[in-house]
Design a protein around this nucleic acid. Structure first.
Lengths: 201, 201
DNA sequence: CAGTGTATTTAGGAGTCCTAACTATCTGGA
DNA sequence: TCCAGATAGTTAGGACTCCTAAATACACTG
């Protein structure tokens, strides 16, 4: 590496730099989440669980949530226990499977969730200033990477359209959802769809 | 939201979806780092510190590393203590400031660092399959978001060219580094430059 | 209905992450 | 010169993360 410091080392690999940038952004987002959680007297996972359980149509069981956040069941169980102790969620046996537990927000839980769910709004606002075409491109690139990681089994669940068995090519639009029977533009593709079912039997 | 489940909710905001995708990818990368660290009997932060200290030309003090990883000084101090106990780094008073501590890898530390520093190679390989133009675009978009977050003081240090006081517009190339006196293409912009100095006095 | 598998919790240990408080050292004046 | 105020780092202590292993309870299959 003659004389250019290690410029070449960073030059030779756009791929590595893209990954590094994603990592940095991820770190920033994580820090942001941590601070928001703290503001509400919660830990990061606790807040994530609270927000997720606050969404309708998503699975609200310990196992599903553990997969969603890529942690073990005991870790998530701890977080739920803490949330329950704080009076923000209620735990109840599932109707169809009494081994399982359904989570539900209490009134207090809904209150906190609604105040905290916009924790990433600052970043979203920054994104608003960028050209739509760039964002579409970046979105496609990021989801391609996520899909690749999921295919390799690195990351457990990602309920993205890109990995969903109902995603088809469209006739008038680029894509088509065979479950909802809806045409989809590129910007309609979701990152976290309640109806998602993995491809390949 | 009439009848389309919450499709519209996800439709209306490409910005939010881009952020969600970044968050997911960040989560996956974090999980990957955790596993690699585990493989070497280390914790995530310990591995990050080990790798960072293994790079030349970067600050190797506790404070700088804490800022780099967005954690408090005590947290990083703990990690360093653990690494020292494992015989992977040495702690020594800095030459110019005897309050400060310089870290250095031991032979064992270099060994582990060199085996683990490619922890994200799997993702990089996935990126290699994507078109260069897309990656350039995505890289620009991600760094724009990071720069925005840094400007807002959300994230502490990001030694990116985009926030560096030495970055100029180039004549033949899009950019120019006024410190190294080098022309820079878009793909030359760095995410973590040793020579970085923040803009604005 | 026995056997196997699944959902979750408990137990226990290393590490993360914080704030507060303390030591040692540096730095800028009077 | 000497001291007040900053700064680099550590220690202390508490809540939480994250794991594996083991237990409990229930579900499914033949």
């Amino acid at each position: 590496m003659p004389g250019t410091f290690d410029l070449d080392q960073q030059h030779w690999d756009l791929d590595a730099k893209l990954v590094a940038a994603a990592e940095r952004l991820g770190q920033a987002l994580r820090a942001l989440l941590r601070r928001e959680a703290r503001r509400h007297g919660l830990s990061p996972v606790q807040l994530q669980v609270l927000i997720q359980v606050g969404q309708r149509a998503y699975p609200k069981r310990v196992g599903a949530l553990a997969a969603r956040f890529d942690v073990s069941a005991p870790t998530l169980s701890d977080a739920v226990a803490a949330l329950e102790a704080k009076g923000l969620v209620v735990r109840r046996p599932a109707a169809d499977d009494r081994r399982a537990v359904e989570l539900e927000l209490t009134a207090a839980g809904r209150e906190v969730a609604s105040r905290a769910e916009g924790w990433a709004d600052g970043v979203t606002a920054l994104a608003a200033a960028l050209p739509t075409a760039d964002k579409l491109q970046a979105f496609a690139t990021l989801t391609a990477l996520i899909a690749g990681l999921q295919a390799e089994g690195v990351v457990s669940v990602a309920r993205m359209c890109r990995t969903c068995r109902f995603l088809r090519e469209g006739t008038d639009t680029p894509y088509w959802c065979a479950l909802l029977e809806l045409p989809l533009e590129r910007e309609d593709l979701r990152v976290d769809c309640p109806e998602h079912e993995p491809r390949a039997a």
